[in-house]
């Protein structure tokens, strides 16, 4: 599941174009993703690529088709590819599709947003940034943290 540069392939296509396309989706879903360094984005992308690789082939195919369809719809509605749109335009397109009467389109949005959330929030740095503190040491760790403040 690696692209020609040896990176884990994101859904919708590998290479720089595929990476830019999925990053555009991810930043529409999680605006903070725009501030990730290249290394941080690499870590998020690796999480997404690994999750996609472990899913059934039919699901991977559907995701790929949806992401390509997103570009096509963007061209039809805005005259530009999805990754060339402004952030507000990306959000608007995703919201429109996410509320579509067609289940396949709603599922597509749900699928890409789930992957974007996984790539962003499953990283320890993101969990820390939102104040998530769960620890195996439970109450002991929490009391120790309170005492040290």
């Amino acid at each position: 599941m690696n692209d020609v540069a040896g990176r884990a392939a994101l859904p919708g296509g590998g290479g720089d174009h595929g990476d830019a396309r999925f990053r555009a989706i991810a930043t529409a879903v999680v605006p903070e993703a725009a501030k990730l360094t290249e290394d941080e984005w690499g870590a998020a992308a690796a999480i997404i690529a690994r999750a996609v690789a472990s899913r059934p082939r039919a699901m991977r195919r559907q995701l790929g088709v949806f992401i390509r369809a997103l570009d096509l719809l963007s061209l039809v509605r805005r005259g530009r590819s999805f990754s060339s749109l402004r952030q507000s335009e990306r959000s608007e397109l995703l919201e429109w599709l996410g509320a579509s009467p067609l289940l396949a389109l709603r599922r597509g949005v749900w699928g890409v947003r789930t992957l974007a959330f996984m790539g962003y929030y499953a990283r320890a740095e993101a969990a820390k940034a939102i104040g998530y503190q769960a620890s195996a040491d439970g109450w002991t760790a929490r009391r120790d943290a309170s005492a040290s403040r």
Partner: peptide, 8 residues
């Protein structure tokens, strides 16, 4: 739940 599951 955990951050990703909550976000999802």
């Amino acid at each position: 739940y955990f951050p990703f599951v909550t976000a999802k």
